[in-house]
Nucleic acid binder design. Structure first.
Ligand SMILES: [Mn+2]
Ligand SMILES: [Mn+2]
Ligand SMILES: [Mn+2]
Ligand SMILES: [Mn+2]
Lengths: 136, 136
DNA sequence: CGGCTAAGTTAGCCGCGGCTAAGTTTGATT
DNA sequence: AATCAAACTTAGCCGCGGCTAACTTAGCCG
């Protein structure tokens, strides 16, 4: 069954942009009360046109709600996905730092790694953060 | 600053398919002396047409060499990329298992994670495999 | 040799996630 | 109220990595 391995990776990538966007939108709303597209432009280093297209897909998929020239809001589903993604991201990043990796590298690497971490692996990382390194 | 984070992830993804393919081609050649497209079809769970397109891109990029109806070979660059990718993949997979993750999950998760692991993080994982868990 | 099957090729299509260029809306400043 | 800059939208383009359908080649076996 090595076939399924790569299919899982492809499926991870299909939800990756959505996870990063809802997380960023939730952060902006938490920080400034509102999320405007220009913040996502800066956050992700892409153009306004790209943000627009992406937001349209997210709206189609029921994760965000917006209207022309209006701020971007999260649906309930979007909020749930954002908080799950945020929690997973934080655990991965903290784990890498606990491993001895610099904060800067942990921030960079965790941004990609987070999307490929299964429940089981996340649990193992969390356990280390809570209880220290495994014995043996 | 945070902008570049996502650009790194996007750049990781741009080389991901190439890394997985040259690794698979090198494995096939090591195991059976030859790599035929059909092996990649099975390995990755995609169609023959997709493998064909991908191999054309890899050839364009100087990683593989082939001709119609002939086996697929690696260039020197392809061989170097394959062995680097293989080493990194093995370290990530072994590290996850050492963390207590099952072999099956380690195989699945490492297939995506490997492409986002920087030199620094790889070094930290290797250190654990060689010298055990960090102190503290 | 002829046929059949597996392997490979080609054409044409799709959605995603990027981009540029050009135009529109908004809201603050004067 | 008019102006202007920033924010936003839209149209049109691209390459990647998927797919199906139809065809071709290679090679084995009767
Ligand atoms: Mn994230
Ligand atoms: Mn991410
Ligand atoms: Mn991989
Ligand atoms: Mn990835």
């Amino acid at each position: 069954m090595p076939t399924k391995v790569h299919q899982r990776t492809r499926s991870d990538h299909a939800s990756e942009v959505a996870e990063d966007y809802v997380e960023a939108i939730a952060d902006a709303i938490a920080d400034r009360g509102i999320c405007r597209a220009v913040e996502l432009v800066n956050q992700f280093g892409v153009t306004h046109a790209t943000v627009n297209n992406t937001i349209k897909r997210l709206q189609r998929d029921g994760l965000v709600k917006t209207a022309p020239y209006q701020p971007i809001e999260l649906t309930e589903r979007g909020k749930r996905l954002a908080s799950q993604s945020r929690r997973r991201h934080e655990i991965v990043q903290a784990f890498l730092q606990k491993l001895g990796v610099s904060a800067r590298t942990a921030a960079t690497d965790s941004e990609g790694i987070e999307h490929h971490v299964s429940k089981e692996t996340l649990g193992a990382m969390k356990r280390v953060l809570d209880n220290g390194w495994p014995t043996g």
